[in-house]
Nucleic acid binder design. Structure first.
Lengths: 134, 134
DNA sequence: TATTAGTTTAGAATGATTATAAATATTTCT
DNA sequence: AGAAATATTTATAATCATTCTAAACTAATA
């Protein structure tokens, strides 16, 4: 599963120890950690890593398309491995973030933008929901 | 056009001078100002108003459903008068924010949430587009 | 009008993020 | 490999948006 590493190399990034560690953190994370959480996970692997490096590296990885930023509207940015495009449903009671995909929805967004004379270059959708108990 | 004022009263808000001024600013704004911009506009009407009051009052108005928050992903919160639900298309070149409505899209969001066992309580969609030149 | 409760102000505090300067590490050149 | 040049990291200060606090002020109530 070193395809992320390959992607970094392809982007001409020097793979230093801190960058490798942060990359590992990303690979190991199935959730959507914020910077602070990523920092905590990185420190577990290497005590000496600095928060500034985490911020800088995350920005670097984001620009290289290695990770994607998710903004659920509280002040912090969360990150996840880039990949298949998907949307997020946030459970307003538990804070849980659930991923989903819906091609029809995607297509409709593209279409709506087009109707206004725009080429869609990015889009962001978050649904906030309450679990229906049966 | 004092329906916003009425709405405040209905919500049991004391209508002090600063609150009236901030309400005026909201009524006069056809765009999507951030807190700092709203503060600047308020100060033009009353020199003595404080940024803390603007923050507090905005939060108050948001909770009362007088205004709505818009987050376009740069660090700041923007606000607009609450009303007809609509979405935003952000022109990535000019930064311009264009409003649009699409009931079909709305319905689809509700449906997608429902399929996952959730009642949609809120949703946020932003399209980022580049103007197509003909 | 005195008392109480709510609001505003100014400024300090906080939390997330970015910038800076010195120390380290990596690459390049010979 | 060793020196010079370049990039990266670290620690910390700075910044930006936002929230909190305490004292002053205003409005509502008894």
């Amino acid at each position: 599963m070193a395809q992320l590493y390959e992607k970094c190399i392809k982007n001409g990034l020097r793979m230093t120890l801190p960058r490798k560690i942060i990359l590992e953190v990303i690979e190991d994370s199935a959730d959507h950690p914020d910077v602070d959480e990523m920092y905590r996970r990185a420190v577990e692997k290497d005590r000496s890593i600095s928060i500034a490096t985490v911020y800088r590296t995350i920005k670097l990885f984001e620009e290289a398309g290695i990770i994607e930023r998710l903004d659920i509207g509280d002040g912090r940015s969360r990150y996840e491995e880039a990949g298949e495009h998907h949307e997020h449903l946030i459970d307003v009671e538990s804070g849980e973030i659930i991923e989903f995909q819906n091609e029809e929805l995607e297509e409709m967004k593209r279409q709506v933008a087009l109707n206004m004379g725009y080429e869609l270059v990015d889009h962001r959708l978050e649904l906030f929901g309450k679990k229906i108990k049966k």
